[in-house]
Design a protein around this nucleic acid. Structure first.
Lengths: 341, 341
DNA sequence: TAACTTTATGACAGCGCTGGTCATTTTGTA
DNA sequence: TACAAAATGACCAGCGCTGTCATAAAGTTA
């Protein structure tokens, strides 16, 4: 019924030790032998017992994903990517939802890692932006990969996957500029999230490059919520000379802005262009569908997991300082239009 | 560093086997011994190693959650509840996102169970409504608990957690009736989901009880999406004598209806009451916030997991045919008002 | 109190695998 | 052909726990 390492060894005509060697990429195994073993594994549909490996090995075969993010779509996508990567590499994924603001959070994470003997951790915002977590993890010598907002790989932080919000925001802004807009407002997300700052910086950079000074009144602080979008947009649209386009820091804010505009009988996109960010499912469901930036969360997560495995694996050659950078892509839909007037 | 069963045994002054007995509720252990062991466990913060248990035992200490649901909030909530229950009972949760419509889905599920030696499975829609999955699982003798929409515990299906959409819909409809509405329309969700049918039935029952015949034109087929809500509402509001209230089968549809009404300059709730269902996060963020029915997904999931553990556990006495029933609760917010005119 | 049953507890093997140590075989090279 | 190097196997311990069976403690009966 259950196929074990012994079955594989028998089928391949080698000892179980050799099978183990193949599984763990140990040196001094002939290619021919490797192939034989791999074939036997495939034919028998062999899957090593994670339980036994975890128990026997000093190494660990599971990684953890801790999350605390109100955006369920983000979490699900990340999780999906991590799960895929884990499946491919025979790892297990331990999922741990928790509260990032709890006072004992650092200890909680440490306990988690130690109790579950995790090989490493994948950290997404807000955890990836908490220096105390990174320090604690480093101090107990646990590998981790952070997914953070940033554009320039820094040699100091080798364990990061970057999401280049700056460049993406730059491109989105350019899209608006090319449509003839110059009076563009920006609805910020939460201050604590560096993504908001990065996106704002990209926005400003694009304006500056065209010689446009960002109107301070057009930059509205807020948070990543529908509510905040409603308020911010309402405020903007009451201005004596209101903007002709609004760059919302994410799709929820954009949806709020859309809503507010609608309330004031402002036609989108004829009288006002609105862009979002993230390409969350409902950005397709608003009316009109939102122009936004697509963030390939699942792929980003996979990449993070792979990076973690590389760190963890003994065979990894560390000469290439991997630091994958993902640039969310502009996705033009119907909420933006050429400026007319 | 890592506390094992040996440490507990030493501390409690018993053998490791006795500790094991206590952990597994095995008979023939003196109460005094049980207490001693429990205390030792607490003091040492002992957590049994799932890996070792899985390896040593014929029983399994992990359960699976397979999902394929476009609603990320639902999935996250369920997952959270399952995770909590698992943590409490020392189980692991194996998460498996997949495609319910894939032709090989039954085999995939079987492989998953057998390969990962799962103690059981928690099934949510659509899997919980696929008879072929239930049959396959039964045939290989794997425990599972289904979360399904239904009101009456049936003696046949002992492994179900019921969500009583019928009664909840009945109550929501009553809320509208009590506000003086009688011209109430219903926007359906997907046909394939039994929840949609249940909700519609509850709706009709409430009307019938008041001696009101449901106007066939007021019952609009659709799907669980914003888009569908927009379309359905637009159609309804174009009717010569349009409804004064709309019961949307879930919050997304309701949001769509809200949107459509707004487009036509219909004031909510003054000119039209709208209710949703599910209490998803954005039902709070629409404007006005939606009156809806709160479905405690996380609690439902916990209950399902507990039920599964009970089945799995040897010590379970099966005389009480548990079949928890959850009735989503009416949550009145600002999208409904007294009928005036 | 001896003889016996029941209940409570412990000793020990083994789950599937890794990690180590050595011995042996195969291969490559001088 | 001789010899070093590489490839493989044999064997053992042990990860933390459970299952089985043997043994000790407690309870019962006459």
């Amino acid at each position: 019924m259950k196929v074990t390492i012994h079955d594989v060894a028998a089928k391949a005509g080698v000892s179980i030790k050799t099978v183990s060697r193949v599984m763990n990429n140990e040196p001094s195994v002939k290619q021919a032998t490797i192939d034989k073993v791999n074939q036997a594994m495939q034919e028998l549909h062999y899957q090593p017992s994670a339980a036994a490996r975890n128990l026997a090995s000093t190494k660990s075969y599971s990684i953890g994903y801790i999350y605390d993010n109100p955006n369920a779509y983000y979490v699900i996508d990340m999780q999906r990517g991590l799960l895929d990567a884990c499946r491919r590499h025979g790892y297990e994924l331990l999922i741990h939802p928790t509260n990032a603001k709890s006072p004992g959070i650092v200890q909680e994470v440490i306990d988690l890692v130690q109790h579950s003997r995790l090989a490493g951790l994948v950290l997404t915002p807000p955890f990836s932006e908490m220096p105390e977590i990174a320090e604690a993890l480093s101090s107990i010598n646990v590998d981790f990969v952070r997914i953070i907002s940033g554009s320039t790989p820094s040699p100091k932080q080798t364990n990061c996957v970057l999401v280049d919000d700056f460049t993406a925001a730059f491109k989105i802004t350019n899209h608006l500029l090319e449509l003839g807009h110059s009076q563009i407002a920006f609805l910020c997300g939460d201050d604590e999230h560096s993504s908001s700052g990065e996106r704002l910086a990209g926005f400003k950079a694009a304006l500056t490059k065209r010689g446009i000074n960002a109107n301070p009144k057009f930059i509205v602080p807020g948070s990543y919520s529908f509510e905040s979008g409603v308020q911010g947009a309402t405020q903007l649209l009451a201005l004596p000379n209101r903007p002709t386009a609004i760059f919302a820091c994410n799709d929820e804010i954009a949806a709020g802005a859309l809503f507010s505009a609608r309330l004031q009988h402002i036609e989108i996109p004829q009288q006002l262009s609105i862009v979002g960010f993230e390409n969350s499912p409902f950005s397709r469901q608003t009316w009109p569908p939102l122009t936004t930036a697509h963030q390939p969360n699942s792929t980003i997560a996979q990449s993070a997991a792979e990076l973690l495995f590389k760190h963890t694996r003994p065979g990894s050659v560390n000469q290439t300082e991997d630091q994958p950078v993902f640039i969310p892509e502009l996705l033009v839909r119907e909420s933006t239009a050429q400026l007319t007037s």
